[in-house]
Design a binder for these strands. Structure first.
Length: 386
RNA sequence: GGGUAGGUUGAGCAGGUGGUGAGCUCCGCUGACUGUAGAUCAGCCGUCUUCGACUGUGGGGGUUCGAUUCCCUCCCUGCCCA
């Protein structure tokens, strides 16, 4: 509902155009979020491997949960009976729920799209389920998240233009239906821009979604197979179209430090991604300048912490050798400590970016921050060297 | 000492009863992961000059055109009996 989120730009971008980055305060039902901000992902009402205190200690003020997953298990009605998602999962800060639209893409051949909605086969037991914009909103209202998101149809960026156009136009119709269905007054509703990498479609989608009374604007379909250059170009196109818009801009699904930095520089306020947590579980730690793969043999005899100046539970207390041992032994503590570290690194990095914006030094600090972020990803590096 | 079952690439196995054994699972090494069907996946994992080639079935003999397979002998391991 309009009014369920109040967003105030704190530090506007400078008039000289050297950056579109800004800081702001996003006031939601369960608290205030400083932007630019990163939201750790807790798909199944848990940030994998961590308890809520650890998530908060890592610096998170808002997390993301998933409508589709929680609808299937344990069921949104059950969560509602227990007093809503916050109480159920023991997290009393803001929560944003993704609408389940992304599963249209990620579940591959387990779904069929038509104009009215999407028919899914459950990834858990194969049973058939139906999601429409109205249903996606109803589930999110039952969950009681601070921010609900309109049901959309993402497309992979490399799809043929007609496929992108078709999905984008349907996303617009579904956006209006999501708005019409949404009734909960203490829950904000964000709309999603699609349009792929096509400049015309992206511009049109940005204008259509921005014309609707959403509380925030999500930029979707940019966490796929596009290159960093294509993504930057798309942001450089879309964000200026929102120039005078007072609402927060949320780039869905990106989370490498390099990607966060470049997108903030281009005017994005909010992010979410599975990446820091998943990568941690798979043994890679984010450190200033790049990644450290704790499974590498050389760490077995290294008594140093993963990162000297890091305040996380891993770095405060344990050596690389110990973490390397935990991963080799498949011990659960390893996953937990690594996840704490990568989230701490990510959220600290966002805090550094906010500080630079407030101080008016972001453009000057970009080289240093880029150095700290390291590469965007391995595949991006491979693209560059190809 | 007698009997019996075995000895295959780090470990554990598969296969092969005369016609080209590099196949699997672990372990190990490296990489990937971006609105989580992911504590997952991929590549490598005998040697080399690596789109190919070579070597390798405990050691030594023998039979044979050809032996990992059949025969002899030795060594080693498990189990049973003394």
């Amino acid at each position: 509902m309009p009014g369920a989120a109040r967003f105030a730009v704190e530090t506007p971008p400078p008039a000289d155009g050297s950056t579109r980055a800004r800081t702001g305060l996003l006031e939601l039902n369960h608290g205030v979020v400083e932007t630019p901000q990163f939201m750790p992902v807790g798909t199944n009402a848990t940030v994998k491997a961590l308890d809520p205190d650890e998530v908060a200690a890592a610096g998170a003020t808002i997390i993301l949960a998933n409508t589709y997953h929680l609808y299937l298990r344990p069921g949104h009605e059950r969560i509602e009976r227990f007093g809503g998602l916050h109480r159920f999962m023991g997290w009393d800060r803001p929560i944003l729920t993704d609408s389940g639209g992304f599963q249209v893409v990620s579940l591959g051949d387990l779904r069929m799209v038509d104009e009215d909605g999407v028919t899914f086969r459950s990834h858990i037991d194969g049973s058939t389920h139906r999601f429409t914009p109205e249903h996606a909103i109803a589930v999110q209202e039952a969950l009681g998240s601070d921010v609900a998101v309109a049901f959309d149809q993402p497309v992979v960026p490399s799809s043929p233009r007609e496929v992108v156009a078709d999905a984008t136009e349907r996303t617009h119709r579904w956006a209006e239906r999501s708005l019409a269905a949404h009734k909960r007054t203490n829950q904000a509703l964000f709309g999603i821009v699609q349009g792929g990498l096509d400049p015309e479609l992206r511009a049109e989608s940005t204008q259509v979604i921005a014309s609707l009374p959403f509380d925030g604007i999500c930029l979707g379909g940019l966490a796929g197979d596009e290159t960093p250059e294509q993504r930057d170009a798309t942001l450089d196109l879309a964000v200026p179209l929102l120039h005078d818009d007072p609402r927060p801009r949320y780039l869905m699904g990106l989370g490498s430090p390099a990607d966060l930095l470049e997108a903030v520089h281009r005017g994005v306020d909010l992010f979410d991604s599975v990446l820091p947590a998943r990568v941690a579980r798979n043994g890679q730690l984010w450190v200033p300048g790049g990644r450290l793969n704790i499974r590498n043999q050389r760490h077995l005899d290294d008594d140093a912490p993963v990162q000297d100046d890091c305040p996380c539970p891993l770095c405060r207390r344990f050596s690389r050798a110990y973490l390397a041992h935990l991963f080799r032994a498949d011990e659960l503590l390893g996953y937990r400590l690594a996840t704490c570290h990568n989230l701490t690194f990510t959220l600290d990095f966002m805090a550094r970016i906010r500080a630079a914006i407030r101080a008016g030094t972001l453009p000057a600090s970009m080289p240093e921050l880029r150095l700290r972020a390291g590469r965007s990803s391995g595949s991006a590096g491979a693209v560059k060297s190809a």
